[in-house]
Write a protein that binds this DNA or RNA. Structure first.
Lengths: 336, 336
DNA sequence: TTGAAAGCGCTAACAC
DNA sequence: GTGTTAGCGCTTTCAA
């Protein structure tokens, strides 16, 4: 059975299409009996409102876009959950786009949105993204945008982030408190704003505690798994092996565990490790991993809530909203 | 700068809207110079085609829906990646819906699709789903549907699955080969078709190898974390503790590792463990976990590819397609 | 090769 | 409380 249209209902009931439309949307200018009749006819005729006709007419799509670098990552998975929860509540639909960390792809995607396909955008920018043209362009078209997690510092838009500087400072201080004096910071990129902030927090904590930072202690693992493992291995074969490691990104954690395990280096005796991750598995690693966890679900929810404020009140200025949700340190065996 | 419409371009160029439309879609009935002029004007006027106007007119949305139980799970995350890859290739957009394992929610979502919002559906059904009314209803409206991973056995639609029976049979045989004689099967639900098949594979492997199945060896952990842990602990305090464990679902793995760790039970010496998961972290667990991994990304891609066949050739009968992608066993320390 | 006109399904302004 | 009318932006006959 094909779908019926408003006209079909109108014809059956010998009323106008406008009346049907109003009745279906429960308008106060329609009498109760008419509403009843319309609703029955709708059911009977297998009516489902065509969302695109409605979007075209109203100029709103009831759809938001979520633009992510990737989704095979515990943070973004959880964030999607939070976003979906709020969208559902609001009766909105969620389009998903993956940039695979490519700025080019990100630009293409954002460009698409100028068409009116979505009423608002949640975005976590790619690693490569170093220019904000595409974002500001889209904002100028009147589309509300909320950054979450990975933002562009120079764009004047709403942001829901965590305190990367702060949490990295805390992570580093934690290692220092546990007696580490040669703490290495392992990351996958220096372009990423988030990674920069974590690096700064790390450096600040060192300095504040009378320890001296050095270039060799900041290791960038942006190569193949094999190369990265070799890089980490080299740390431990040097004359001053680290006694503390900060795995600044989830992906670094397996590397550190694998290498130390292979080399017979004991965590936390020989080296203490702390990692940034939301993975549940942190607690079943051996030794269990002390982590900094981001409030991923909450961030998704908060970002979506903010976005809907921007969508619903069109004069609402999102640009000054900047919510910082704290990450928390969960101490486990790897830093005991 | 607001978006321009086809009319704006037409006015500027003093041609008809039809010509502009045709030129933009690179129709062969338009001369090269006209096309050139139109394209330039479009750029100049900041034109972006309104997708909803187009959808309304053409009756196609260039959008597909992905309906998932949840997304904080390595399998579904990877599957989304595969789906997105194909959708992008085809110029389609991807709407995401989460059922949170609720059949009621699933029905609501499927119902929405009768409106024409999407051209096709990829679905992995919820644990609760025991009736196929909502699926068949939607199919009857002419919407192509492809199941992936979690299907309904009695629905005549395309399915992309993995060989749960087979892979569980292999997992069990592997444990038997390693000398286990008291293998327990730990799962989170018996309703789930996938879980049933895995159970059957487990049982068949036992029987084929002269081992006797028993009810006590099938443990269902569908409670709180705490209760589940207690349940597993009880296995080991009984008079015949398991010497082999199959963690039939990703979520079971942390439980098994935590409990054995707390109780000082050595894997793989006292008990060998094999788990169903796609998580990268399996290899950095201690001991590293032997796993059955599903080809998640590939399944997403395959399901999407199939769906687009159904969408593009509207006479193409999807219902007989049933692709089984093999899962693979990766042997690690936990079963050595 | 181009234009005129109709219409996809819905809604909103304006009448009555 | 209900009907009439127009139009959202695009595509597609049909005619020229």
């Amino acid at each position: 059975m094909p779908v019926a249209t408003i006209k079909d209902i109108a014809k059956l009931l010998r009323v106008s299409a406008a009346t049907v439309s109003r009745a279906l949307r429960d308008s106060h200018e329609i009498s109760a009996p008419t509403k009843e009749k319309v609703r029955n006819a709708a059911r009977q005729l297998n009516y489902f409102p065509n969302p695109y006709a409605s979007s075209l007419r109203k100029g709103r799509s009831k759809t938001i876009a979520v633009v992510l670098p990737e989704v095979a990552d515990s943070f973004f998975s959880l964030a999607i959950n939070g976003i979906e929860a709020i969208a559902k509540e609001k009766g909105y639909h969620v389009l998903i786009y993956l940039t695979h960390e490519s700025m080019e792809r990100e630009v293409e995607i954002l460009n698409e949105f100028k068409s009116g396909r979505v009423d608002g955008i949640l975005i976590s920018v790619s690693k490569e993204t170093n220019c904000s043209q595409h974002i500001t362009n889209t904002m100028e078209m009147g589309l509300p945008i909320v950054f979450f997690d990975r933002k562009l510092p120079d764009v004047n838009a709403a942001k829901v982030i965590t305190d990367d500087y702060e949490s990295s400072y805390i992570a580093t201080s934690h290692l220092i408190k546990k007696g580490c004096t040669n703490i290495h910071f392992i990351t996958i990129s220096r372009e990423l704003y988030m990674a920069q902030k974590r690096e700064e927090g790390y450096l600040a904590a060192l300095l504040d505690n009378g320890l001296f930072p050095s270039k060799e202690k900041i290791v960038i693992c942006n190569d193949t798994d094999e190369h990265n493992q070799r890089k980490i291995k080299k740390l431990f074969t040097g004359k001053l092996p680290p006694d503390g490691i900060i795995a600044a990104v989830e992906k670094i954690i397996p590397l550190v565990y694998l290498v130390t395990n292979k080399m017979g280096i004991k965590i936390p005796d020989a080296v203490k490790v702390i990692g940034f991750t939301n993975l549940e598995t942190a607690k079943i690693l051996n030794p269990s991993l002390t982590t900094i966890v981001q409030p991923a679900f909450q961030m998704g929810k908060t970002a979506a809530t903010l976005l809907f404020k921007g969508i619903e009140k069109k004069n609402y200025d999102l640009s000054s909203d900047r919510l910082v949700l704290p990450s928390i340190l969960i101490e486990r065996e790897s830093t005991q």
